[in-house]
Amino acid sequence: MRRIINRVPDHMTVVVLAAVPFLVLAALYLAGSAARLAENPNDKLLPAVTTMAETLHRLAFEPSRRTGEIVLWADTAASLTRLALGVGVAAAFGLVFGVAIGLIPYVRAGLASVVAVLSMIPPMAVLPILFIVFGLGDLSKVVLITVGIGPFLIRDLAIRVGEMPRELLIKAQTLGASTWQIVLRVVLPQVLPRLIDAVRLSLGPAWLFLIAAEGIAATDGLGYRIFLVRRYLAMDVILPYVAWITLLAAALDIALRLLSRGLFAWTRVRSG
């Protein structure tokens, strides 16, 4: 009998094993929904798949009677814009400060501690301050995302720059490179793949901050919609929205992975 750590499933088995948990979850939902609806046809907690499909069709293809917009797309555009701005600004901060802290001892001496302390502040705790200072519009939500993931990105990049072999920096200097040239030609190309990885890791928290801020104060957005219809127990809206958000998050993650692969071919080459 071979040890279980040495037994590797073949391709077909991998596909089946991966599909099983999804099928089990779907079956559990369908059974639960059917049981509750059999008892009370007006039950709102576990709506039937057909109900959700009808609601989703209305949200995704029919203009809202109140605003004339198609709700799902308007919400998606608003949320993705905020997310992209927040993550983009945080990534820019992460790159600039991370490289400066990791590479330049004087900047590290001055900023490393304060960034470490700032990163310990729970971002949700300062959300009221952001609402007071930046108002209830888009800006406060963008700032919350930036404040929430920026310190992580800065520290991650600074650590990665600090981990670069000292030899490479010496070598660049013996080729006559200035500090600026070292940043451009040695440090940035080596940490950009890491920046994309770090952004992928921080997308989860970024969505969390976005949905929370939209849920508390907004007039549109995916999080706003979920929190709005919660009052009516409209699970037929909430569940499709959650699925849609999950799909968007997964698509972003895959897109970033493909971008990294495409841009930085050297990270994947192996000898022989």
Binding site: P165, K171, W266
Partner: peptide, 20 residues
């Protein structure tokens, strides 16, 4: 005071840029 192009170096490893 700094390393410069007047003195070249070859290390045992990490001597070349992996991204180029």
């Amino acid at each position: 005071e700094d390393p410069g192009p007047d003195r070249g170096i070859v290390f045992q490893k990490y001597s070349v840029f992996p991204h180029l």
